[in-house]
Write a protein that binds this DNA or RNA. Structure first.
Lengths: 157, 157
DNA sequence: CGCATATCGTTATGTGACATAACTATTATG
DNA sequence: CATAATAGTTATGTCACATAACGATATGCG
């Protein structure tokens, strides 16, 4: 008698062709690689992607408020608290009171923070050079342009 | 007497120029937008990005093993368990025993699974069309090419 | 053929990036 | 002056990821 559940065929090669038809899938997979390599790159500095980004923004914008940093990073303000706590605990930045607004803090980098930031940026430059090896300037510019336009779709609302 | 900590200057415009110099940053920000829009797109199907990807791969490769699915999705096998559990509980797929290997399961889609998958794919096509509006075919092909090359850097090791 | 190693899927547990709700203190506005 | 808004925080939750370890089973080697 016929088997109600015949043994399925052996899958020897998995096709992800359908997913590959979406740029989002490519972005996800490529970004996974970037993320993993960046994590490795930042580990010697005891930084993660998110604390690195916060530090860079604070070094480049001394005195910015926590709410401004949250906006710049596109994250929720409550999630910033532990990030700032960690950078402050490591003496990389300071929360300074704002005499004109007692609700707010101004975030300023310390000398150690600037120095670590500079070294981390150099390391991240190498990380990017590795991942973009063989990518020409024209291709690079085009990719940035398209990524910018995708990102802009999210802020238009 | 001089103030030991003078009031920092008011930051009126936050510069993220340093971070913008890295393609990884652009990828992160653009992918955040893709992820948020995709989450909205898949919500009516009660799917998340990860369960959607799993479903598509199972529909396209009926009979594949959990280990194969984990490889295809580049995730750890333990993390697959709750994904498969959820899809199975919703009767979108089945875990079928493999007569030739009692350790393994073959993952097969159900009719409901195929149908939901087809509808979800159409919705994701619209999501992508929205995000890629104004992006030409040449630009699109170039972006895919660069993303593929970045992704390939991660598998070369 | 027996045994060591490898594989498959699972359970258990942990981390970190995200989210929302609600709070207090303070400032801005009408 | 009352009310609304803002700044930062605490509390808590979800989910995508990670590793360790386990039992059952398959494989390969001596």
């Amino acid at each position: 008698m016929s088997k109600p559940n015949p043994a399925p065929p052996v899958v020897t090669r998995v096709s992800d062709a359908t997913l590959r038809g979406f740029v989002g899938y490519h972005m996800k997979r490529a970004f996974n690689v970037v993320q993993a390599d960046l994590a490795t790159t930042l580990k010697p500095f005891d930084l993660r992607m998110i604390t690195y980004s916060a530090l860079v923004l604070i070094v480049d914008n001394p005195g910015l408020r926590q709410s401004q940093l949250a906006d710049a990073m596109d994250i929720e303000r409550p999630n910033l608290v532990v990030i700032i706590d960690e950078l402050e605990r490591r003496d990389l930045i300071l929360r300074e009171k704002v005499p004109t607004d007692r609700r707010a803090y101004a975030l300023v980098p310390t000398l150690a923070g600037r120095q670590l930031c500079a070294r981390a940026i150099e390391a991240v430059k190498s990380h990017e050079a590795r991942l973009l090896q063989g990518v020409g300037m024209t291709e690079y510019a085009q990719v940035l342009d398209v990524l910018r336009r995708i990102e802009a779709k999210g802020t238009k609302e």
